[in-house]
Design a protein around this nucleic acid. Sequence first.
DNA 1: AGGCAGGTGGCCA
DNA 2: TGGCCACCTGCC
Length: 283
Amino acid sequence: MTGFDLSLGALSPLGAHALAETLDGGQCFRWRRLDDGCWRGVSGTTAAEIREVPPGFRARLIAGDASQLSHHLAEDIDWHALADRLPWRSDAHLARCIKAFPGLRILRQPFMETLLCFLCSATKQIVQIKQMAAALAVQFGRELVPGIHALPTWDRLAEASEERLRTCQLGFRASYILQVARFFESRPAWLDETASLPYPQARERLMELPGVGGKIADCALLFGAEKLDAFPVDVWLLRAMARHYGLDGWKPAQIAHFGRVHFGPLAGLAQQYLFAWERRFGM
DNA sequence: AGGCAGGTGGCCA
DNA sequence: TGGCCACCTGCC
């Protein structure tokens, strides 16, 4: 075991709120806070812990290598500069969200994992989605070090029975996951091809999969394929847009369109800020 | 204790 | 197209 020898936030300093929202705000489901206040997480075959060491944060590897961890945490991107490109100068609410979560970022996650987790997400709360992901990892994923498992590959899931999948508390989502896994068996390059398309085409294509509608497609693309122009709209965003933008009664598809137009090519980052605000202060 | 949750698909007019 | 409803299950 190494010590906490990796310094985080060199390029883009993180606030504690922003880190918590990034790791536990619903863009990923594989980080959790330990009793001692550290964060522990897994992405792909990399596992690590993050600890606050004022004035910043430090990480230690549990499995995998430092460059993978740094890639996952998107340490190479200047998130303050990206946030500065959002239209906050003419949008007082957005300005206040950015101020509240300095350094908030979009993690880079393996596309296949993002899709799997968001297939689990339909009408579930974050806690429960995390439980499903953890169960899938323990039952079907590779053990990286004792007690810490990666999420399973789609190949592995394709061999599973629906009955066994349902033991991961998936409910009706199990059959979607199995159908998708079996589809990927016959089309191994399909997911990579999809990730390489521009956002609008990638979205259309993802929505061909059973269990994937506009919201899940947008989440998978924003969080798993670096499509920062994707603008996922869930109940939190509906609430945020009704409350702060006067868009009461608008339907999700209309809000999504408004968001992409109003916030522009980094709409997904704006969405993350609005989401974080709504969760923290919106009740 | 039971309603409800970060949706989607299928069925109706 | 647009509106409803079933689908599983466990958390608040």
